[in-house]
Design a protein around this nucleic acid. Structure first.
Length: 1070
RNA sequence: GGGCGUUUAGCUCAGUUGGUUAGAGCGUACGGAUCACACCCGUAAGGUCACAGGUUCGAGUCCUGUAACGCCCACCA
């Protein structure tokens, strides 16, 4: 690094960032080693929420990864063995859809044209080509992940953990097979997740259909022909159903004698009636009470279906109070069907046509069938009426076509409570009743006052704490987790199955499978584990309607055998290898893949090499913090806790930090479709990575939303992009840091007595404690800033931490201290000590700021090392820069450690530098300075023109104030400054009363303006006196408020009153 | 429908167990090409803390209710 070239006056991130990135990368500073720096060093670990491999960096990533990097860099500098584990997620459907789309656009081929193997190959190809984009973007941001460890949820390390977990869960009876309604995309012929379904209002109709009652003795005679539904006589019998009948609504479906002839049900999807298996009414509904248990004839099919009572499904007030029940095609009906043990008739083919269960309508597209059915019902006189109806219809986000609820076989993880005996046998449940309970009990929902208490509690803590409830409430439902997806991109479900007509045919396969002969599939394994430890077989009897797994094959009748092997020593060919082996036994692998969240759930331990007992797992698991968005508390966080406990016995992290969601000015979340977000790479291009990061940190308050007004700008090249003025906050601050450092470098180099530190006594021989007040003050501020910033970070109060660091740097260091150093250096007044203090303060500031703005601070650090290599304060604050880096340092050749691994200011600050008295006095000086400036400004005194000032202070402070007078003189541009305990106001002087001082600014008088100013001040003081006096006159206050508070109020009143006297006198003399 | 959050200066937000006449950044106004920085420096103006009750000696802060906005979850025959 060419450190000593003069720095340009404006910080140029583009000139600095690539060089710094290379320096960090070459030095390997982000790499974590389980045994370095020392076995005793505490560990700090964050696993990155793996971004979607198809993804590009967006605002949410910029925020979340900035915050994680701040935590990581902070702890690395504190000497922790620090690991930030990076990686990407294969993101099942999202990735497959993207690749399918590009293939279709280029080659007009669907995945069915390509076939499974070829499509998966193409997706891998695509992933290798484009899958690192987001990683590269994270590097641009300066994220200090251990890139050597970068994982992918579909790589072999993760795949082994997936297979091992599935095997264990299957063995423990926690993975089961079942029917389930999925959101079926008939265009893509795949199930899509709930969150991939969007709802759209669609104008449709509500068809009211008559279901005639079945059985003898009901309604009019001749119900049998009507029951067939097709009979024209069906129409004849509905005598009173015409629109002209005013009594119809009051007693629909009754004949002239009031006997019930038919029930009317309403539906938006008439074709689903082909799969109806009941009509439900409310049990307390007087209209239909007597019919419960009878049957109706399903029109068009002639099937008889029961009338059942269901208070959950039926809303008495809605429509006729009768509901058709189609368990295979509606989620509510499905639940109802389960409650009543109803048959479930699937009427659809995967591509959305009516299947063989649809009788005459089989083979028709569902919408064609709908039209035909409506026409047939009308012809049969069974269509009561048709209403316009607007309803929310679920659409697939991928194909934009309407979703069909579709009943299919799926795999589930059981979340609920198990039979106690069963639960007790499962080691992974650690004595809990079930997986959901295991995860619920791991999280603390109580408030803890301190970090120590939290640690003692031993559970996972959420920040902000309220999100613990979101987590717990969702888990408390204990709904089974559907883990199968009808996709090709993902972890294939490690289950091979075979249907057997009888037990003998199974015995053959079994011999092949686990026989001890050479032909036994699993004998190819290297280890000596017994078959039971590496192979689990479960059976489902053909005649079991619940499809429950049993351990032994049914002695009679057909059944399906499900085989789950533990394939943990495989390689990338595992699927091919095992498929071939099992094929020889007549077994075929389940075509589905696992839910993406199944592998994400294992991320904190799979990335560390579990199920092997690796050094990484021992050192870096469990992690310290998980930082993520609230929308995946349930999908991801809960499942990580659950699998972490189940597999390892330990929750995967101690704290969960939930960051806010960035929204636009209208409060809408950033969405691609709205194009209301920003591209962090654009922001880095325009303002620099540090500006992006500092702004992000400043925004990270505890609220759940962050609003970010965006605006469009057009670059010189004509490209249009979205940005926000708020990033100027970060850019301006970086420029300030840059220039303050430039000034410091000039000052430090300009030393006639050699650079500070060159002789080892870098305070110029002057004990800092006796120097000018600004030295003691800024050093005390350095110490306090170190404490306060770290205190805020420890509470995940990023905005506060950034604000404190900024205030310290800009307000204290730049606006006050540097301004005072200027005159000292120029006047050679204790200049060496000023340089020493300046070098120390800048050193500490760069360290403190590094986690927020790493690039600029690292660059300036190298310059500071060259100019002032030794900058500790002997006896007061020793620094690691004062001695050469130890042998464990990463970069032995460098004269100084790079900032990225330099020591952070101590968490307890620098106790020997704390000087509250100096801070108090300096505050008074600041107040006096500001007061004089105000007078100058309001009188229009030109900045260059000095004013003369007389200050009256109590006699005991005269000496000390005379020593400190340079602060006021310099910063308020005061010429003659007289300090006199007996000073009197002079004519033409403006009068100020601050603290215990009276300040007279001479020869600036403008009677009218002065009167106005004094009167305003008087009004202000009177207001305060009224408030304080009223409070103290209140007997209840004096009696009940703490004595301390009362005493403070009395002191305040006295001080304000004495200031008032000064003002009154000045007014009188005017 | 269930849960959660927000409402403080023109804008975006702080305000730490209740205790000065409520703060910051941006924006605005005035002054400043002073040898670190105009992406800067100095100064100022700007607030019935959404509304209505209550608790308290004392409420931006705690409680109840109302309103508006927003997020998550569930559901809509």
């Amino acid at each position: 690094m060419a450190s000593l070239e003069p720095l340009p006056p404006t910080y140029d991130p583009k000139a600095v960032e690539p060089e710094i990135r290379r320096c960090w990368s070459d030095g390997g500073y982000f790499h974590a080693d389980p045994s370095t720096p020392s076995p005793q060093a505490p560990t700090y670990v964050i696993v990155i929420p793996p971004p979607n491999v198809t993804g590009a960096l967006h605002g949410g990533h910029a925020l979340n990864n900035t915050l994680q990097d701040i935590l990581i860099r902070w702890h690395r500098m504190r000497g922790f063995n620090t690991l930030w584990m990076p990686g990407t997620d294969h993101a099942g459907i999202a990735t497959q859809a993207v690749v399918e789309k590009t293939i279709f656009e280029k080659e007009k081929k669907t995945r069915h044209d390509l076939g499974r193997e070829e499509l998966v190959r193409r997706i891998w190809e695509w992933k290798e080509k484009y899958g690192n984009r987001i990683i590269e973007q994270l590097k641009l941001m300066g994220c200090s992940c251990d890139w050597e460890r970068t994982r992918f949820t579909l790589d072999e390390t993760c795949a082994r953990a997936v297979r091992a977990t599935f095997f264990r869960m299957f063995r423990d009876g926690l993975i089961v097979r079942g029917k389930r309604l999925v959101n079926w995309d008939t265009a893509l012929q795949t199930a899509v997740a709930d969150d991939e379904v969007y709802h759209e209002k669609v104008k449709g109709h509500l068809w009211h259909i008559r279901y005639p009652l079945a059985g003898p003795g009901f309604g009019v005679q001749g119900s049998a022909p009507r029951a067939a539904g097709f009979s024209p006589r069906g129409a004849d019998t509905s005598l009173n159903a015409g629109e002209e009948d005013p009594s119809r609504d009051a007693s629909p479906g009754r004949d002239r004698e009031g006997a019930v002839e038919y029930l009317i049900v309403a539906t938006t999807r008439p074709e689903t009636m082909l799969g109806d298996t009941a009509v439900a009414v409310h049990p307390d509904d007087e209209r239909w009470k007597g019919l419960i248990g009878r049957k109706v004839v399903l029109p068009l099919t002639g099937r008889e279906i029961p009338i059942i009572a269901d208070p959950i499904l039926v809303n008495r007030e809605f429509g006729t109070g009768c509901v058709k029940v189609t368990p295979a095609h509606d989620p509510n009906d499905y639940q109802c069907g389960l409650r009543h043990g109803l048959p479930m008739i699937n009427i659809l083919t995967p591509d959305g046509r009516i299947n063989e269960n649809g009788g005459a309508y089989a083979g028709m597209d569902r919408y064609a069938a709908r039209r035909k059915i409506v026409a047939d019902l009308e012809a049969a006189g069974l269509l009561d009426k048709v209403e316009d109806h607007e309803s929310d219809v679920g659409h697939s986000d991928r194909s934009k076509t309407p979703i069909e609820p579709y009943l299919s076989d799926q795999w589930f993880v059981r979340m609920g409570d198990l039979d106690p005996a069963e639960a007790g046998r499962i080691e992974g449940l650690r004595g809990r009743s079930g997986l959901a309970q295991l995860a619920i009990d791991a999280v603390c929902t109580r408030e803890h006052a301190s970090a120590e208490e939290r640690k003692a509690c031993g559970k996972v803590h959420f920040f902000p704490q309220r999100y613990a409830n979101t987590y717990r409430d969702w888990l408390a439902e204990k709904r089974d987790w559907c883990i199968s997806r009808q996709l090709w991109w993902g972890h294939r479900i490690p289950i091979w199955s075979k249907h057997c007509d009888n037990i003998e045919s199974w015995r053959d396969s079994e011999r092949n499978l686990i026989g001890d002969g050479a032909q036994g599939v699993l004998s190819e394994r290297r280890d000596n584990s017994s078959p039971a430890e590496r192979l689990v077989v479960r059976f489902v009897a053909d005649n079991d309607p619940t499809s429950s797994f049993v351990k032994d094959p049914p002695p009679s009748g057909g059944f399906t055998a499900y085989v789950c092997p533990l394939l943990e020593d495989g390689d990338q060919q595992t699927d091919e290898w095992s498929n071939a082996a099992f094929k020889r036994c007549g077994l075929t692998q389940d075509p589905d893949v696992l839910d993406t969240w199944f592998s994400s759930a294992l991320w904190p331990h799979s990335t560390m090499g579990w199920p092997d007992d690796t050094a990484e797992l021992r050192k870096y698991y469990p992690g310290s913090v998980l930082s993520t968005a609230r929308e995946i508390i349930t999908l991801w966080v809960a499942r990580m806790v659950l699998t972490g406990l189940y597999n390892t016995g330990q929750a995967p992290f101690h704290d969960v930090y939930i960051h806010a969601v960035i929204q636009d000015a209208q409060g809408r979340p950033f969405k691609k479709s709205l194009n209301n977000g920003f591209d962090p790479v654009d922001i880095i291009e325009m303002y620099g990575a540090d500006a992006l990061r500092f702004t992000m940190a400043s925004l990270a308050t505890e609220t759940q939303d962050i609003r970010m007004p965006m605006k469009k700008v057009r670059l010189e090249g004509g490209r249009e992009l979205q940005t926000s003025e708020r990033f100027e906050l970060g850019r301006n601050f970086c420029n300030k840091i840059w220039n303050a450092a430039r000034f410091a470098f000039i000052t430090l180099e300009d030393s006639t007595g050699g650079r500070p530190g060159s002789d080892g006594s870098n305070t110029g021989g002057t004990p800092v404690r006796q120097g000018p007040i600004e030295d003691r003050w800024i050093l005390s501020r350095v110490s306090r800033a170190a404490v306060e910033v770290q205190d805020a970070l420890a509470r995940f109060a990023f905005s506060r931490a950034a604000g404190l660091a900024r205030d310290f740097f800009w307000d204290s260091l730049c606006d006050w201290y540097l301004e005072l150093v200027k005159s000292r250096v120029r006047e050679h007044r204790q200049a060496d000590q000023a340089r020493a203090v300046l070098a120390f303060a800048l050193d500490q500031a760069l360290r403190l700021l590094h986690p927020f703005v790493p690039f600029i601070t690292e660059r300036l650090w190298s310059q500071l090392n060259a100019i002032a290599p030794r900058r500790g304060l002997p006896g007061l604050a020793e620094l690691d820069t004062d001695s050469p880096p130890d042998n464990r340092g990463h970069d032995k050749a460098a004269p100084c450690r790079p900032l990225v691994i330099a020591r952070f200011p101590p968490i307890e600050g620098w106790p020997k530098l704390n000087d509250p008295a100096a801070e108090r006095v300096f505050e008074d000086l600041q107040t006096a300075t500001r007061a004089i400036r105000e007078v100058r400004s309001s009188r229009g005194v030109p900045p260059r023109q000095a004013v003369n000032v007389v200050v009256k202070v109590p006699a005991e402070r005269v000496e000390s104030l005379r020593q400190e007078a340079h602060v006021i003189r310099r910063l308020a541009n005061v010429g003659e400054l007289t300090i006199d305990p007996r000073a009197e106001r002079r004519p033409n002087a403006a009068t100020l009363a601050v603290g215990d001082m009276q300040i007279f600014v001479l020869d600036v008088i403008d009677s009218a303006a002065e009167r106005k100013r004094l009167e305003a001040e008087l009004a202000n003081l009177d207001g305060q006196i009224a408030a304080l006096g009223g409070k103290l006159a209140n007997e209840a206050f004096v009696a009940r408020a703490p004595a301390q508070v009362v005493a403070t109020e009395r002191e305040k009143l006295a001080a304000v009153q004495s200031r008032r006297e000064v003002v009154v006198r000045a007014l009188a003399e005017l």
